[in-house]
Each structure stands twice: as C-alpha cells, then as structure tokens.
Write a protein that binds this DNA or RNA. Sequence first.
DNA 1: CTGAAAGCGCTAACAT
DNA 2: ATGTTAGCGCTTTCAG
Lengths: 336, 336
Amino acid sequence: MVKIKDIAERCGLSVASVSKALHGKTDINPKTVEYVKKVAKEMGYIPNSSARMLKTNHSYIIGLLFIDSTNSGLTHEYFSIILSNIRDECKKHGYDITFISNQLGKNECSYYEHAKYRNCDGVIIACADFKDPRVIEIVESEIPTITIDYDFNDHSSVNSDNIQGMKDIIKYLYEMGHRNIAFIHGELTSVTQKRIKGFYNACSEYGIEVNEDFVREGRYHIPKVSGQITRELLQNKNRPTVIIYPDDYSLLGGITEIEKQGLRIPEDISVVGYDGILLSRLMRPIFTTYVQDAVEIGKKASEKLIEIIDNPKVTLPERISVVGKLQEGQTVKKLN
Amino acid sequence: MVKIKDIAERCGLSVASVSKALHGKTDINPKTVEYVKKVAKEMGYIPNSSARMLKTNHSYIIGLLFIDSTNSGLTHEYFSIILSNIRDECKKHGYDITFISNQLGKNECSYYEHAKYRNCDGVIIACADFKDPRVIEIVESEIPTITIDYDFNDHSSVNSDNIQGMKDIIKYLYEMGHRNIAFIHGELTSVTQKRIKGFYNACSEYGIEVNEDFVREGRYHIPKVSGQITRELLQNKNRPTVIIYPDDYSLLGGITEIEKQGLRIPEDISVVGYDGILLSRLMRPIFTTYVQDAVEIGKKASEKLIEIIDNPKVTLPERISVVGKLQEGQTVKKLN
DNA sequence: CTGAAAGCGCTAACAT
DNA sequence: ATGTTAGCGCTTTCAG
C-alpha cells in the first residue's frame, strides 16, 4: 500500500509537505501541489481513513439506527426509500454510512458504544423503539443525532406530517360527501397518536360526528388484522361509507375482505390507505391514499445532521416537518 | 474519551498488560484480567476502531455495492431483503457494513479506492453493472469479494437459481395442461439469460413447442411495458393459455391489462410471476410465482465472504446456488 | 514555502 | 506474568 511517506521520498519532499499538497493547503507552492498530486496519482495513492480519523477525530461516517422489531424495518418501502435517500445525500456531502447495532465483535454493547467505537460523527435514528433506554442514551449523548418520526426534547427531528396527512384525508372525504367514517389505526405509537389527533381535529373542524365504535386499533402492515376488523365493521347495520386504513398493505387486506363479502369498491364502500407505496399506483382501482414524502424525509434528515456536525454550537434543535400529498386515486366514491 | 492508558494508570499496569487483559489473552493472570475488565467497565472504556485498524490491518468492515441504476436497488423487495440479511449475518460475526460508492470526500473515486480508503475486509457486490470496469477492477483486486447473481471467473458468487426457477415453472404449467406458453422476460442481463435458457431447456424436456412470437423482451419492474406486451399477445388469434412475466410487479401490469380486456384470471388466461414478493401473497387471486430465497442469498453471501476473509488462502472460489420454490397460488388454471 | 517532530490509541514483538 | 518499545499512516503545530 503506497502511503504519504512513499510519495514524499519520490518527490524529494517531507511527508508534511505532501500532506499539505494533497489537501491543497495555501501555504505551499502551487507547482509543488500539482507535482505531488500527479505523483500520488501515478503511484496509486489511496489515503487511509483510520489514520486520518485517529488524528483528526473526524470520521465522515454517519451511523444509522434501523432496528426492525418485527423484521420489517429495511424491507418496508417507506424505510427503504428513506435509507436510499440518506445514503445518496450523505454521499453528496462526502459521508459514508454504517448501521449501528448492539453487537461489538463477539460482545453485546449499547448503540452508543457501537457508534463511539466506529467514531460516528453523527447518528440518524430512523426506526427504533424510542422508549428503549439504549436509544435514549445515544440521543442524550454528545453524539449529534437526528430522529425520524419522533421528537425528543431539545433534539432535532424530521417528521412526516401525520396530522396534516389525516386532515387532508378527512377534508377530501368530507368534500366527497362522506360523513360516516371508520378509522382503523395502527398500534399506539407516537405516529399513530398524531394521526388519531389529526383525525379527530379534522372531523370536528368539518362537523363530522365520530362514531367511537368505528375508530379501531389494528396493526400496521398486517392485512389479516385489518381484514378482520373490516369484516366487523361491515356487519354493522349502519355501516360506514368509508374506511381509513393504517397503511396501504392493510388497505389491501381490507379490500380482499370487502370483495369477499361481495361488495364493490368504491360503489358500495370507499376505502383509503396511507403511505402511497408504489403498489398503490399499480392497483386497479388506484388507491386513494396519503403519499408520505420519504425521499424528502431521508434527504432532510441527512442535511440537518450534517449541518449539526459542521456547526455543533451554532445549530439549534429544529423539528422539521415534511408534508406529503393526497393521492386521490379511485377508491373513494362521491356521494349524492 | 477514556483510553487504555487511563485504565493502565488506574490499575497500576502497563498499557500492554491492559490490552492483553481486555482481549483475554492467555499470558496474563486471570485475576488481572478480571480486575482490568472491571475497571474498564467502570471507567466506561470504549475501544477505538481506527487505532485498532491502523495497527491490525483488519477493520471488521464489509463494503456493500448496491448500485441502483433506476430500477433495481435498495427499494426493491428482493434487494432490501438481501441487504437486511447481509446486515444481520455480518452483525452475528462482529462485522459492520458500509456502502461503497464512487465518492470520496469531495472527489470522485473508483469503488476500489473507496473500499480501500475505508479498509474494507471484503466487499459484497449485490447489484451493480457487472460490465462496468470499476466493478471489474474491485473484483480483480486483492480485496475479497463475492457477487450476487453474477459469476466472475475464479471468484465466489451466490446465485439465485434462475434456471431451476424457470424449470419449476414450466414443469408446473405442463402438469396443469398448458402447451401454449408466452414468456415475457426482462432486459438481457445474465440473470435473464439464465431464465431464458431454463425456459427453453424445460420446454424441450417436456416436449412443449415454443412459439418464438410469444417470447418477448419486456422490462423488469415496469408494469406498463408488460401491460403493453400483454395486449399484443392477447390480440393473437391463437393466443397463449398462459403468460410468464419477469417479476411480480410486471405481472401486476399484465393483470391490469388482462382485466381491462374483460378477461378473467385464471379462467380465461393464466399468468405467472417471478420473485414471490409479499404482495404476491396478499393479492387475490394469490399469484402463481417463483419465490426467490432472498433471505438465504443474503446470509450465504455474508457467510462465504467472511469465510474467505478468515481463510484467504484456503478458501476456494465457489458458486453457491440458492434455490427458491414455486408458489402455486391461484393464477394458473388447470386445463382439460 | 518547506521540514522536523510529536502524537492520535492501539497492538504485538520482544524483553524481563 | 508483566513491561518496554516500536510503529501503523496521517495531520498539524512550530521552527526555519
């Protein structure tokens, strides 16, 4: 492996000068810079990040916390788009990314320890159990962090605007003439709570009376569960004119059940999803769903974190909200 | 940051002894080991990987090449499952992963340079343009690599068994009485070539006469394209009894077109997908498709690479084939 | 403008 | 069983 020392010898310079030249510092002869760079290239010089890191305490590595409790994290489209865009945005700024786990060699460790071990300049917490003491530990540590879809006090976060999302859905349903709305939401995470809040606020705003029996807890990404709840909702004599699902996969489960009951969508009953995954646009009828802007969420999280890393003192905690947009689709019928 | 020297001072030992104790070496008093470990824990010692790497030339980092040229990449379920399982398997062995790109700080670089810069012990090439000189460069370098779904001479690879996949499909179709089979395949990658080969071989084996007009090139993951080709196939007077698609998303495009033409699946025409993504099991009718074992592919790739890293001399290049299984589903009709 | 030298934190010969 | 020491490759004062 060719190193700076080798270049120095070949150029008849000191390692210090070569290092400076390679970094284009100003206190060095431009011709020397040019010469050194040329020789370095010829010799196939590749810097060694470990040596650099050891000296500078700056790794240009960003740690990622993507913990899939149910083996679902990375494989869900929402998160994989976020990941993909974090990667691209970090790359643009010269940062690499690595996953943070609770494993260090043969031993267990905390997320903080792992991130420290790898000298991460910052950590993006994309999906994790935010109540986990080990997650809290890293957030409250000196490592800059940014959370996605969760707010810690005095820490920056990027949030998909779930309140607005529900409001947009309700507004659309209202305009389409729906007044008898069922809402199946996911397990009670903070995201879910925001959606529930948005749901009630919007209903109240539009003077829609909420039937509490029609607000039901399901499970994210488990079509069977929403299918079952759908069946129960349909049995109601005064059944809802529209059902809102926690996500597009759940919506699919609902659709399956509805069709099994011999009902047509949207003629007999309307349905709405959430997320706006690719599938929602490929299905016929096209799903009415709220498209979360996962691309922007990934980008913003990376940008903000890098901003904090670059200006640790100056940067204030910020809660960035990323709005999505309603995909009207074809699964909601206009009433009257 | 507490370092070995701090522990040494506190324990009244040399840094060498502390280092040995921390690694549980044998030439050190067990009581000392215990004591040192206790003190290290108390002081919150976290090793520094850069220093370690610099000294040992062993990073415990595996580089990942996941280049998404538009259609493939992180957001496709097949690859995200592979990624997820690479991550888990590497973690199990104490390895971390990082993405390799062509960006090094502010400058462009080759994949090899990037991997070298980060001292990757090995690289998994999961999706990339295998004809790209920069991909070839890293494969032919001294860095251990393993490719997924592509074979380089004298290099290890893990392959989803595409030939077997097609054979299983044809066998099933044959048993279901189909003799007039259309096959829409993806753009001509090496994977596609294997599938085509498997298709022809199997047809010949079962005495199925292939109508060349019914073997068509489509595009992976572009439902519209397969929809268009489907339409053309349906216009044929002696139209096929079954259409095989390059993937499940494409199949969805085909289904949309078929239903638009007022035909029913599988009563009027049968269809078959490839991949076996989650969606294929949620749709009604359930897709008949070949389920690739992405979990196993990710695991095997990691295992094999780590084996090569651990035994660079001993390990022979190996082409590992991972078979999937046919999901019979409900989109193929039994004829006669 | 260039160079000498210190040192980042750690490991592993090689003493003792 | 423990300690001494050199050095991994790099950056960065500080001196010239």
